[in-house]
Design a protein around this nucleic acid. Sequence first.
DNA 1: CGGTCTCTTGAGACGGGTCAAATGCGGTGG
DNA 2: CCACCGCATTTGACCCGTCTCAAGAGACCG
Lengths: 292, 292
Amino acid sequence: MMTPVLAPFESSVRVDRPAVHRSHRAPAAERGRLRDLVALLGLGDEALQTIDPSISVALWHVYQGGGLLLEGELATTLYVVRTGSLKSMKTLEDGYEQVLSLALPGELLGSEALHEGHQPATVVALQDTTVHALPLCELRQLCLQCPVLDRALQRALSRQLVRAAEVTAMNAAVSSDVRLARFLLWLSARMADIGQSSHRILLRLGRRDIASLLCVAHETVSRGFTTLAEAGYLAIDRKEVEILDMARLRQFSRCTRGGPQESAHGTRGVEVARCVAATAWDASLETALTTD
Amino acid sequence: MMTPVLAPFESSVRVDRPAVHRSHRAPAAERGRLRDLVALLGLGDEALQTIDPSISVALWHVYQGGGLLLEGELATTLYVVRTGSLKSMKTLEDGYEQVLSLALPGELLGSEALHEGHQPATVVALQDTTVHALPLCELRQLCLQCPVLDRALQRALSRQLVRAAEVTAMNAAVSSDVRLARFLLWLSARMADIGQSSHRILLRLGRRDIASLLCVAHETVSRGFTTLAEAGYLAIDRKEVEILDMARLRQFSRCTRGGPQESAHGTRGVEVARCVAATAWDASLETALTTD
DNA sequence: CGGTCTCTTGAGACGGGTCAAATGCGGTGG
DNA sequence: CCACCGCATTTGACCCGTCTCAAGAGACCG
């Protein structure tokens, strides 16, 4: 932690040719690191027994705004997020930054590079973050030694696929306000998954990044927050969101084009009533869906 | 092939509760089936040696409009597309059908269910299609026996992730015409990958499905085709597309909001000229990019 | 304390959604 | 073989939602 962080690229970075912007390796070398990794992959201590303890699993620190992966880079390592959060994004030919996903603890990074051998996306930390680094060659050994871990890896890959599908579903053709509501519910569920509050959320993504993820202009996101807040679904202060009425927010998020359209405008609750008949049913599902 | 196909659901199906619409198992039982599967995963015959030949890999036929996976279904099997094509889609709470991806030969289906254990999406054949079916329990044995295959599976999973990211990038915030152009280029590249013409393409997806994939109204897709055709980029007849000017189509596809906007309207080539200065450079990259 | 950033809010224009109707193809049954 | 029906596709007209441009208020940083 003495070593200064290598120039993390600015938050709204335009990734240029070279420069392996990379945060330094942290000195930390705890004993339970492997155990920690194994737990993140959803396995118990018993899996630990079958693993060669000489395997080196480095712990990396990536500071806010720092890059972990750079588009085009050769794939040498797979990462598992331990703490913090990161965004992955693709810089399109025209220079537009398309945010692809949000990585929270327990998730895999760099797995898209197994195919083709180079990173298809850039990954940047949204806050100070730690990741376990598994060199691919060691990973192969691990998979051979420990079939349980091999399967855990498959499951983790599968989860990434599910996440990607969720993002696509979020962007299903609907109004921007509904998209934003879906985003918040999605985030809320994921926070719950990692044991954090699903009601009070600190947005790590800026408006611009959220906008990119939802494929809208950033002003639209801003207005959307205002609208949802005025409707009483949530309170927002800068990057802090508090979901005040989960059930109604979820109700609102169901609207699609073609279906009964809901507007969050106007006196709260009035026009929402139209399709809220299902709210009781809704509430019964809520616990199942949110893991509150 | 004597057995009649179990009621395939109609092409524009709304998946309701029950009914395991499932096409029947085909009688075919060729010798080289395993070899075929292994080849689809990008492995050579040498991998075949390490595999227990008693492993049962069934070949399934799914007829046009027939379902292979049903949302919510328990995960028991992984499929590898052998011939044909399928779409995977999610039925959102409001009944809207969101198309998530297009599966072509060599791709994995059902892999999203490794996590959570049940299918998160429905998969329907767009034409008569054959898939290799690997029961999960046997798959595990295979992975143990044959590390090469295990890694091939990881790569295949990784590829699915890349595909998902591509879809997201396609939908990056741009005009609907540009989105359509990107879709066509994407499809063109994938057709090339599987050894088919990248210039003449038979669309297996209907306008409605394309619209869903691109998150626009189906009328907009229709108009988009007309626009691109009038601009001279392509010719379209019903479901047959012929890309007439790949370079200019690609050029057009680069436009994003914020960047220099291009309109395909009006006399072809006029307004395109503005940012076509790079066309020479473009052409040099083309071969690298398209695998024509 | 200024510079630079993000975020918010407003005003106006335009793209694309919605509704509607015409066309054409494919499949079905007489 | 033909008439009929349903569905996909196309095209037009209209209007709302969202993008764009612009300005101003806060934050954060040096």
